[in-house]
Amino acid sequence: MDIQIISADKLTKEHLSVWSYIQQNNPLLGSPYFSPEYTSIVAEAKGDVLVAIIKDAGEIVGFFPFEKNSWPIARPVAWQIADYQTLVLKSGFNFDIREFVESCNLKIWNFCNMPNTILPEQQFHKLREEPSYIIDVSAGYDSYIEERNLRSDWIKKTIKMMRKVERDLGEIRFVPQLDDESVLNLMMRWKSEQYARMNTYDRFQIDWLKQVVEKVYATRNERFEGMLSALYIGDQVAGIEFGMRTPSVLHSWFSIYNQDFYKYSPGMILQLKIIEYVASQGMKHIDIGAGTDNYKERVANNSITICHGYIEIPSVITTVRNLRNRSMEMLNSVKTLVTA
């Protein structure tokens, strides 16, 4: 196994083509987060993304995109918005992950939201795991509706609400793929207002993150594209969702609705419309990510387990980090005893 590390902006057309081929032929890599376009977009916006190109007997068999500062510690690409991270590997290719990390001149690889099907558990330190929710429409829209109606009444309530909207306010119109930058800007403005109401940090204050969203929106090809969807009530925008998609998977990224229509549940109406559209396109599923939102458990009919953890190579750096972590654990234990 040979490793070549390059800046992501140095990836050639051949590299990108091989990466896409590996992704399309490995069923575990359907997410747009694993697409070369996503890594290239982040690299263009941030400028500090590296890629390890993995070769076996002269053939490229994988790619490992990551970020690293002056310390030999890797972290996910755009970790602030990284709903998934993994190695992009040719299906069936296996190797010793610690040997690989060391070959990348790294001492620690910190990862988050790693699908648990990617790496053997015995090869890394697991800090925690959680479900990441999926709306599986591989059997078709009608099958999804039938299964959800057995477990929840959200679809029946949403359809009833749609009738009420049309009686009270007028026509409902759904546009699955908008080419309108003003709606994208409206989504970001509404999300910023939502973050302010929730007293949480406004992601769109991060310049590179905003650039990533804009560049994903502007990308259109058969392998990867941004997907901006909108729900209209009359002539007003009632809800917006922005995500990114591959031929088989839509990853829901940012969703927001018009507060003026709050009592009409525009967010749930928009979600149902998107589910119907994705199923009609022959896609496999919508990924709505991890989290404790009640609506995710209502609309999802499947999930995958994702892990948070790290891989480390024994060194001075890992020794210092482990000592620091143990000190923090002892300090927290003392605080617990004092306040008990």
Rank of each mutant, 00 (worst) to 15 (best):
K107E: 14
S103I: 02
L119D: 08
E67W: 03
C112Q: 15
Q85G: 03
S91C: 12
P72K: 00
F100L: 15
I97T: 04
I81P: 11
I97H: 09
T86E: 14
A82C: 09
F111K: 07
N69D: 10
F64Q: 03
P65V: 00
F93R: 15
G92P: 11
V88N: 04
D83I: 00
W71G: 02
K68A: 02
E99A: 12
Q85R: 07
R75D: 05
R75H: 12
F95I: 08
F66V: 02
C104W: 07
L87E: 07
S70L: 11
N116C: 13
D96R: 14
N116W: 13
E67I: 01
G92F: 11
I108D: 06
V77Q: 04
T86C: 09
W109A: 12
F100Q: 02
I118R: 14
D96S: 12
Q85L: 02
E102W: 08
I73Y: 08
E102L: 10
P72A: 02
N94F: 09
W109T: 04
A78W: 09
D83K: 12
I73F: 06
I108Y: 08
F64R: 00
F66E: 03
L106K: 00
E67L: 04
F66R: 00
K68F: 03
A74L: 07
C104R: 05
F100C: 05
Y84H: 11
Y84I: 02
P76G: 06
P65C: 02
V101S: 01
K107I: 02
I73T: 06
L119K: 10
L87R: 07
F93A: 07
S103L: 10
L87H: 02
N110A: 05
